[in-house]
């Protein structure tokens, strides 16, 4: 592998952009195809399908074998609300390999002492998310119970097509939430992407059990349904 190709791969990953390294098995020819230039590649169809599943693998094309090293950005979890459930969710998510950030403008909650394992941002979600925008490789859990805080993040999450959006609250709370989102112009297709009440139905009671049900739901959203290719409509 040429060093410049490896540098390119590492740079795309750092900037949270998908890319595929194509290696011809036999000849050893290699090229790096960035997500934005995918459609111009001779292997476009195979590359697009590989990007959707996020899985590396062999493909055959015109009598030659190629290995695709598929690189999609590291998966993040943004937790809105530095609450009790979040204190359990942050370490569990970290063990599961997610890059965790906690956002809560209420400074009494949002202290680093309560969350030794993940960065805590004591700001309103819009300010915090301006600096680190949501994207389709990000999961978001809305846990404050306060629409003033949660809704700001929910609007961003729907627009950014986060692969997982979970929201705490009863069915009644959620019905009200959906009404507010409809008023903002979101259609039913977008709204069905919100998981609420949040978490798998495993009868979770304690904050730690609820955190387990949330992480299970996030893993399901990540692994059962392929991530959509960049540039593809919702």
């Amino acid at each position: 592998m040429r060093l410049d190709l490896l540098k390119g791969m590492n740079e795309e990953r750092l900037n949270r952009r998908a890319a595929i390294l194509v290696t011809e098995i036999g000849g050893g020819e290699q090229r790096l195809v960035k997500a934005a230039a995918l459609s111009e590649d001779p292997l476009a169809a195979a590359l697009e399908s590989a990007l959707r599943t996020g899985k590396s693998g062999m493909v055959e094309h015109a009598g030659a074998s190629y290995f695709l090293t598929v690189q999609v950005p590291p998966v993040r979890l943004v937790i809105i609300g530095a609450v009790h459930i979040s204190q359990a969710l942050a370490p569990i998510a970290k063990i599961a390999g997610l890059d965790v950030t906690i956002i809560d403008p209420r400074t009494a909650f949002a202290t680093q002492e309560r969350f030794p394992e993940a960065p805590v941002i004591a700001e309103w979600p819009d300010a915090a998310l301006d600096r680190a925008p949501l994207d389709r490789y990000t999961a978001i859990a809305l846990l404050t119970h306060d629409p003033k805080i949660d809704d700001i993040a929910l609007l961003r999450a729907l627009n950014a097509e986060c692969f997982y959006i979970g929201a705490l609250g009863s069915r009644k709370t959620h019905a009200n939430r959906l009404e507010r989102m409809r008023a903002q112009g979101f259609g039913e297709a977008a709204l069905t992407r919100i998981h609420a009440p949040i978490g798998l139905d495993i009868g979770a009671v304690s904050p730690a059990e609820i955190a387990v049900s949330i992480i299970g739901e996030i893993v399901g959203a990540l692994r059962k349904k392929p991530l959509r290719a960049e540039g593809q409509a919702a």
Partner: peptide, 17 residues
């Protein structure tokens, strides 16, 4: 040198890639 798992059959311990 970089080694990459490019194919697996059966119960392989590490995934392709």
């Amino acid at each position: 040198a970089i080694a990459t798992v490019v194919d697996t059959w059966g119960s392989a311990p590490r995934p392709v890639g």
